[in-house]
Amino acid sequence: MLQRLIDDVKESTGSALRLTSLAAAAAVALFITLAFLCAAAFISVLQHYGPVEACLSGAAVFLVVTLFAVGVYTARKREMRRRAEKAAKAAAANVFTDPVVVATGLQIVRAIGVKRLIPILAVGGLALGLMASRGAASSAEAEEEK
């Protein structure tokens, strides 16, 4: 189980590092391209309309590019959050199918005894139910805020 957790951390870290390096390379290339395109557009607008109009048109272009980048960033962040939630739910479901967990549970039942274990399980079930209802309420509130 610990190895699975370590593998998940390694995978997410590697994925984040690859995405970051790819984004940095794309940003440098985009910056150089935009610099030349902006210089050409600025000179063209400056010759036809004047300096004020040239500066305003350059600002408008950069505003559009910034809004596009913010939209892509927000969509990517939302997608990563959904994937993380799905992975967490899948990991929680897979805990009880692990043979080590089942064997440990059987050993606990043998050591404590069934008669003593029933009240413990009842209290544990109640606590689990309360935690699940709080988790569902907080996720519903988070969805309402969006």
Rank of each mutant, 00 (worst) to 15 (best):
A39C: 05
A39H: 15
A40R: 11
A41C: 09
F42R: 00
F42P: 00
F42V: 00
I43G: 03
V45N: 05
L46I: 08
Q47H: 11
Q47I: 11
G50K: 03
P51M: 12
E53W: 15
A54M: 12
C55N: 11
C55T: 08
C55F: 09
S57V: 14
A59V: 04
A59S: 05
A60C: 12
L63K: 02
L63P: 06
V65Y: 11
T66F: 11
L67Y: 14
F68N: 00
F68K: 01
V70I: 07
G71I: 04
V72K: 01
T74A: 15
R76V: 06
K77V: 00
R78W: 13
E79W: 10
R82I: 01
R83V: 10
R83E: 09
A84H: 15
A87N: 08
A87I: 14
A90N: 13
T97M: 06
V101M: 03
V102A: 10
T104I: 04
Q107D: 09
Q107M: 12
I108R: 13
V109T: 03
V109G: 03
R110M: 02
A111N: 08
A111G: 13
G113I: 13
V114N: 02
P119V: 03
I120P: 10
I120A: 15
L121T: 05
L121E: 06
A122L: 13
G124L: 08
G124M: 15
G125D: 03
L128P: 00
G129S: 04
L130E: 01
A132D: 07
G135L: 10
A136L: 07
S139G: 03
S139A: 02
A140C: 04
A140S: 00
E141N: 03
E141P: 02
E143P: 02
E144G: 01
E144Y: 07
E145F: 15
